[in-house]
Amino acid sequence: KTYTFRVRIVDEETGEEKEIEVTAKSEEEAKKAAEELKKKYPNLKVELE
């Protein structure tokens, strides 16, 4: 079973919002993916929905 999570990304500089879908095998995995995004884009606000 896989879970699909919507991750909302807000670029703090431009105020631009993007939504991406993360497919993960567990909620834990999705959280890790969101953390990776935060590391990659430090000025983005990442929200897991």
Rank of each mutant, 00 (worst) to 15 (best):
K40P: 02
T2F: 13
T23I: 13
A34H: 07
E16C: 13
E17Y: 14
E12W: 08
E12Q: 11
E47S: 12
V7F: 14
L44G: 05
A24I: 03
A24L: 04
K40M: 13
D11R: 01
E27Y: 15
K1T: 09
T23Q: 12
A33C: 15
K38Q: 13
E12A: 10
G15H: 03
L37K: 01
R8F: 12
K1Q: 09
E19C: 15
F5N: 00
A24T: 05
R6F: 12
S26F: 02
A34C: 14
K18D: 05
G15W: 03
K40F: 07
R8Y: 12
P42R: 04
L48N: 04
E35A: 11
N43K: 07
E28V: 08
L37E: 01
E12N: 08
E49I: 15
N43S: 07
D11C: 09
S26D: 09
N43H: 12
A34E: 07
E36N: 08
G15R: 02
E19F: 15
K32H: 11
T2Q: 10
I20T: 02
A34V: 15
L37M: 07
T14A: 03
K45M: 08
E21Y: 15
S26L: 01
E21R: 06
E35Q: 11
E17V: 15
N43T: 08
A34G: 04
L48M: 11
A33I: 15
E27G: 04
K40G: 04
K32F: 10
K25M: 12
K31C: 13
K39L: 11
F5K: 00
E13N: 11
E36L: 12
A34N: 02
E17N: 05
E19P: 01
K45E: 04
R8T: 08
T4Q: 05
E16Q: 07
E17M: 13
N43G: 12
E47K: 07
V22M: 07
E12V: 11
T2G: 07
T4P: 05
E29S: 04
E49F: 06
S26K: 01
E19M: 15
K18Q: 12
E27T: 06
A33G: 04
E49Y: 07
E19I: 15
Y3N: 02
A30L: 13
E17P: 03
Y41K: 03
R8M: 06
A30W: 09
F5G: 00
I9V: 09
K40W: 07
Y41F: 09
K1E: 09
L44T: 05
V46R: 02
L37W: 10
T23D: 05
I20A: 01
E13P: 01
